[in-house]
Structures are given as structure tokens and as C-alpha cells.
Computed example of a mutant assay.
Amino acid sequence: MKKILMFVSLCALLCNTGCKKEEEEKEHEAQFLVTNPVKKDTTITKDYVAQIRSIQHIELRAQERGYLQQILVDEGQFVKQGQLLFRIMPNLYQAEMQKAKAEANFAEIEYQNTKKLAESNVVAPNELAMAKAKFDKAKAELQLAQVHLQFTEIRAPFDGIIDRFMVRQGSLVDEGDLLTNLSDNTKMWVYFNVPEAEYLDYKQNLDSNRQDNKVSLLMANNKYFDYPGKIETIEADFNNETGNIPFRATFPNPKDLLRHGETGNIHITTPLTNALLIPQKATFEVLDKKYVYVISKNNTVQSREITVAHELPHIYIVSSGLSEGDKILLEGLRLVKENQKIEYKTLKPESVLADLELYAE
């Protein structure tokens, strides 16, 4: 009988101990984590797909018809302004220039002789005028022949890099045929499109001195270009189909890393003062609207719609719906119901944001 009583007492003790542990675990599990929104100066970075262009990129074309006699440079070569690049067979144009030169010399002799006779009143003034006109015409034809001869030599109009050749030595080229392209890459123009609302924000921040015109370029290899650029031009009109307006930023290119036709992403950083920040994980969505659970004075949870102005990594910047003194549910959003009374532990927002690796100033 004593053994039975001892066994029953032991079972009751174990059961009581187990129930206490379960109650403690439930109480521990039922304690939710809560935090507050916090106001903080920070920055947001916006990303735009960009096209990279040389500050000068032109086509070099033949100005005269003939056989391509010489190619004096190579593809990809850096050339200086005035450097001879191509020579089209000049023999015909040299002969035409010699002919024009001889005719000009003959016309000059005739004019000088007629002038002497006119001074002695041997010939009429009209005859002198005719000789002078003939001489002027011959000089003009000589100049034209010299221009045609010069056109047989294609020279670099500025310092730059030669592109791929479209013809080869010995080819017969017509006037206007494309020979190659020439790019001046000392500076690069980077074009990107900005939506209307973001354009207005940029201009207003720029006018109020809260925004500078410096931008960064993320290259195709996911690395940032070494030198910052400056937004120097905004086009006049919006594209009615896309709602965007083109911006142009200029980047120095001293190491010649950037080339015409590359792509990348422009990053524009905008400072924000007293931005109201909350963790993204404290929100939930209903029909594309964002909500948080706010803890009321009697410790009940109540859903509240918020407006998100900007998004950072793991962070939302809230423009309406919350104030700095509100308490919001941080975790366990799926475990609670509307107007449910809860027990909670409050975490400082600074420690919560630090855990989320917020990059802020």
C-alpha cells in the first residue's frame, strides 16, 4: 500500500513539474517583440540603366572616288589630331592639279601683258577686265583641284581611337563610303532615363541645396567606376509613351577604361532628413497595401495602413500612418489576431536597425 502511495505521489510531482514547465514555455512563447519607428538622417540610392557614349564619336568616310592606296594606322590605335590615316590613289587628282596650275600660270601671264598694254592705252579697259576675270577663274579652278587632291588624304580631325576598318587596302571606294569610326574617349557621356516624379524630386532637392549633381557608375562587371560623374544636361521634353526624361552625366576617363557602346547603371544618392524608419519584416500586405500591427495602450494589437515612401535594404521609409512614439509588432505577425491582447518585450529601434545592417548617416 505504501509503495502504491509513493508511486502516485511521484507521478503527481512529475505531472505538476511538467505542467509548470509547459506553462512557463507558453508564457515565454507568448511574449512578443515590439519596437518603435525611429527618425534618422539617411540616404537613398536610386538605380538607372545607362548607355555609355564617347564625347565625340564620328564616321570617317571617303571624300573622293578611287582605290584605297594606303592604310597608315591599325584598328584600336590611338591617333593624334591631323595624323594621316588613309590615302586614296591621288594620281588622277595630282594630274588635274598640275593642269589647273599650268592654266593659272598662263592666265596670269596674259593678264600681266594686257595690263601693260592697257597702261599704254593700247587696249581698251574691257579687254583688261576680261583678262583679269580669266585669271581669277584659273586661280579658282586651281584651288578646287588642290581641294580634291587634299580629299585623297583622310586625316584625324581630333585625338581618338580608331575603330574597325570597313575596307581594306586596294579596295575601290566611292565618295561617301564608310572607312572606319573615330572615338574621343577622354570624357564619356552616360545617358539614362528618369521618371517624372523622380525628376521633380531631384530638381527640388537640387534647387534647395540638399542634392548635388554627382553620380556613380556601376559597370557591367558589378564594380564601381573609379571616378564620379556629374549630371550636366537634362533634355527638354518628356517621352509621352514612357513618362521618362533623359539625363546625361559626364565622366572623366583618364585610364581609357570606358569605351563607346558600353552599358552600366547610374546610382544617384539623395539625402533624407528626419526620415521615419521601420524594419520591413514588421509589415504585411493586404491587396497591395502595406500594414503594421500597432500596440494600443491596453496592450492589444491593431492593424494600421502605412504609406512607404522609399525602400532601403531591409528597411522602409514611411511617409504616413505612423509616428515615432508608436509601438509596432516586430515578429510573430502571423500568430496574432486583430484586437488580441498580448504580452511583449520592447527592443530599442537603434539595436533593431543595427541588426538589419542599415547604411545611414
Rank of each mutant, 00 (worst) to 15 (best):
E22W: 15
R164N: 02
E235M: 09
S183D: 14
I245K: 11
M166D: 04
V38Y: 11
L258N: 06
L10Q: 03
D355W: 01
Y191G: 00
I58E: 09
A309H: 06
E311H: 11
D201C: 00
K348M: 07
A62N: 10
R304P: 03
L358I: 11
E23H: 02
E103V: 01
L179E: 04
L276D: 02
E285Q: 13
Q63M: 10
Q77D: 10
L257N: 11
C15Y: 14
N240A: 12
Y293G: 05
I161L: 09
A197G: 05
F86S: 04
K3L: 06
L142W: 10
K39L: 07
S319F: 03
Y227I: 02
H28K: 13
V147I: 13
K80H: 13
T233I: 13
K3G: 13
N222A: 15
K290S: 12
R155P: 00
N36H: 14
A129N: 11
A354Q: 11
F158I: 01
T186G: 12
V308I: 14
G18H: 06
T307Y: 01
K26W: 10
P279M: 07
Q81F: 01
Y227K: 08
I55H: 05
L329S: 02
A197Y: 07
I317M: 10
D226E: 15
G325L: 02
M166P: 00
L276Y: 08
V34L: 07
D41E: 14
K20A: 12
E96S: 03
T114I: 04
E108W: 04
Q51N: 15
G160L: 04
D201W: 05
V8M: 10
L10V: 14
L142I: 00
Y67I: 14
M89H: 13
I315T: 15
T42V: 13
S171N: 15
L312T: 10
Q83V: 11
E127D: 14
Q51Y: 12
I295H: 11
K187C: 01
L10Y: 13
W189Q: 06
N274R: 06
S120D: 11
I234S: 09
I234D: 06
A30D: 13
V318N: 10
Y199L: 07
S351T: 13
Y316N: 12
A282C: 11
I295G: 09
S171E: 03
Q169Y: 04
V8W: 07
Q204E: 13
E153T: 09
V318R: 07
G170V: 02
T17K: 00
T263F: 15
E305W: 09
V49Q: 05
K230H: 06
K3C: 01
D207P: 00
Y191R: 05
E75A: 14
A131M: 01
W189M: 05
M130D: 14
C11A: 14
V352M: 08
A100I: 03
K281F: 13
M1E: 14
E361Q: 07
N265Q: 12
E96P: 01
D212R: 04
T242V: 06
D174G: 15
V301K: 10
N121V: 01
F32E: 01
L60T: 13
A12F: 15
Q98I: 03
A30C: 02
P349G: 03
Y227V: 01
F78G: 01
H260I: 03
D237C: 00
V318D: 04
K134I: 00
Q150K: 08
